[in-house]
């Protein structure tokens, strides 16, 4: 019996005020995979992420995460149990401004585990250390740079070791060395723990380095225009937009 996919999206469509952002988005993500969502700016990548986790209502289609449909979760306990197993890094960081970075990372631990306080503190410190922010644990979000906020967002998303992690443009605004370090961290975690990653990114190098599979959204097509292994797409795709994307050409 084949393993149940971690994410199953069936014909997803999202519209804002009658304007369709995308439709007929169908894909599956398997366990331990690093799944990349590609596409030009404004094509709906962040929206797709939010639709998957139930923050944006679907105009059509169904989305299953870890075998369950969030939209159909009957009671709060089911929702909570599902959400506990999902980590999200927001495109803007979305750190809580009145808490230090360490407290930001501790928040989900406090909410969902019975870890004693020193354990939470040590774990939060370690998570910040993972993303290279070990020395900034006591700072407030207003006191760090944009790239640091991204990394703190990743540390918070990873706080509970969720089996499914959504990262919205983790590499944006990072220098190549830090960005490569982050890529390696993602690959390591996926390999060692079977964590599944859904990553939105534009960085070609990053896509090719970490992506097991990808889909590409397009604004004109209002939907998916490609799906598959990014390395093969780069070599073999005949779609003009996909080719232009991978060759870094203006359309």
């Amino acid at each position: 019996m084949a393993e149940e996919p971690v994410i199953r999206a069936e014909g997803l469509a999202v519209a804002f005020n009658g304007n369709t952002v995308f439709r007929d988005v169908t894909f599956e993500v398997r366990r331990g995979e690093i799944f990349v969502i590609l596409g030009g700016s404004g094509c709906g990548k962040s929206t797709l992420l939010k639709a998957l986790i139930g923050l944006v209502p679907l105009a059509a289609g169904r989305a299953f995460l870890l075998g369950e449909e969030l939209a159909a979760a009957r009671d709060d306990a089911t929702r909570r149990a599902l959400l506990r197993r999902i980590g999200v890094m927001w495109q803007s960081g979305a750190l809580f401004g009145s808490m230090t970075l360490a407290e930001n990372v501790e928040l989900p631990l406090e909410e969902h585990t019975a870890l004693p306080r020193p354990a939470r503190e040590a774990l939060a410190r370690a998570k910040l250390g993972l993303v290279g922010l070990g020395d900034a644990a006591a700072r407030l979000p207003a006191e760090i740079s944009g790239g640091m906020a991204k990394r703190a967002g990743i540390a918070r998303a990873m706080a509970l070791d969720p089996p499914l992690l959504f990262l919205d443009e983790p590499g944006a605004g990072l220098d190549p060395i830090t960005s490569a370090g982050l890529d390696r961290l993602i690959v390591d975690i996926a390999r060692d723990t079977g964590t599944t990653f859904v990553v939105v990114t534009h960085e070609l190098q990053s896509i090719l380095a970490i992506g097991d599979r990808c889909i590409m959204l397009d604004k004109q097509a209002r939907g998916m225009i490609a799906e598959g292994d990014p390395r093969r797409l780069r070599e073999e795709s005949t779609h003009p937009t996909v080719r232009a994307f991978f060759r870094r050409e203006a359309a």
Binding site: R125, A126, G129, L130, L133, G134, D135, D188, I189
Partner: peptide, 20 residues
């Protein structure tokens, strides 16, 4: 192997984050 990998990674992480 996976256990060793997790342990090694967290050891590096803690080393990079000295107790305040």
């Amino acid at each position: 192997e996976p256990v060793a990998a997790v342990l090694a990674r967290m050891r590096r992480a803690l080393a990079a984050a000295p107790a305040p």
